[in-house]
């Protein structure tokens, strides 16, 4: 009984971790720039495809794919910020709509193999079908300690998430860059008046958030089929976590990811996946109605 409970909580914790990684990036872009990036899920998807392609063509393993995916997603995110989002600051609903267009665009580029499939050329690792990404053997085999089943891959996800959350906290609260980002969060005009280069900082912040999405994508690829539309459900979950946690609050995002992930995990085992997700949505609606600024949000913008 204790073992079963521990297992359930463990699976919930790993779900929470992925959620947190996705939400962390969103929390930064939404909180710092007031951008609802509907293409965040596609940045996750691009991370997953980076892993697949780097495994296929460069023979890179999981550990090398992680930093590569961070860079690729960050690069795509940076480009999206420079070309589109930059023109939409302050128009939050429009950022939602425009980035939804970006999401479709990115999905279709992968599905159509960057347009090459028009010319009958097929690229392995792309296209509408699903791809898989092998994880190193020593992470995929479960082993027992004191009767508890340890799933090394899930443990790896949890550890990496903790590390990246800590890194994000450090960047945001212990560096001058982070201070500038938080200044922009609270009051962008004032920050600009204080000599902060809002454009440049916003671009870097967006790139960092996008990079985190790429990392989440690689981790997802380890236990889920990689598909062009895998980002669709991911982005909604991520947003719910951010909004429930409170915009701009790292701690709120952390707590809300933990709670929602656990609710999902526990109810998935007590009932089924579908009901578990439905319960999560119900809880989220209720919480937003009661506390529109989130559990730990502040009023801003």
């Amino acid at each position: 009984m204790v073992h079963r409970m521990a297992n359930i909580l463990f699976i919930g914790l790993s779900l929470s971790s992925i959620l947190l990684l996705i939400a962390l990036g969103l929390s930064i872009t939404y909180g710092a720039m007031g951008v609802i990036n509907m293409a965040h899920g596609e940045l996750v998807m691009i991370g997953a495809y980076t892993a697949v392609l780097s495994g296929l063509y460069l023979n890179l393993n999981l550990f090398l794919a992680l930093p590569l995916a961070f860079l690729v997603s960050a690069g795509v995110g940076l480009a999206v910020e420079r070309v589109i989002i930059r023109q939409l600051y302050g128009r939050i609903i429009d950022t939602l709509l425009a980035t939804w267009g970006v999401a479709i665009l990115l999905q279709q580029l992968i599905r159509l193999e960057f347009g090459l499939s028009f010319f009958g050329i097929h690229v392995d690792g792309l296209g509408p079908g699903f791809q898989s990404f092998p994880i190193p053997a020593f992470l995929s085999e479960n082993f027992d300690i004191l009767g508890f089943t340890v799933q090394p891959y899930r443990s790896f996800i949890i550890v990496l998430t903790i590390a990246l959350t800590f890194l994000t906290w450090f960047l945001m609260y212990r560096t001058s860059l982070g201070t500038q980002v938080r200044a922009i969060m609270r009051n962008p005009q004032m920050a600009a008046a204080c000599g902060i280069d809002v454009n440049r900082i916003s671009a870097w912040t967006f790139a960092y958030g996008s990079g985190l999405a790429g990392v989440a994508g690689v981790l997802l690829a380890g236990f889920k089929a990689v598909l062009p539309n895998m980002g669709e459900s991911v982005v909604v979950d991520g947003f719910l976590v951010v909004v429930v946690g409170g915009v701009g609050s790292l701690f709120g995002t952390l707590l809300s990811a933990a709670v929602l992930g656990q609710i999902n995990g526990v109810f998935a085992i007590l009932t089924n996946d579908i009901v578990a997700r439905a319960i999560v949505f119900g809880v989220v609606i209720f919480l937003i109605l009661l506390r529109p600024n989130g559990l730990f949000g502040f009023k801003s913008r």
């Binding site: 589109i84 023109q87 939409l88 429009d94 709509l97 425009a98 939804w100 267009g101 970006v102 999401a103 479709i104 665009l105 999905q107 279709q108 580029l109 599905r111 159509l112 499939s117 028009f118 509408p128």
Partner: peptide, 23 residues
């Protein structure tokens, strides 16, 4: 099938275009 997928891509682009330039 292939034109259908390409059309979705075009819709994505049109939509970005509309939001940016023709709100």
């Amino acid at each position: 099938e292939i034109f259908k997928e390409a059309w979705k891509l075009i819709i994505g682009v049109i939509f970005i275009f509309v939001v940016l330039l023709l709100p």
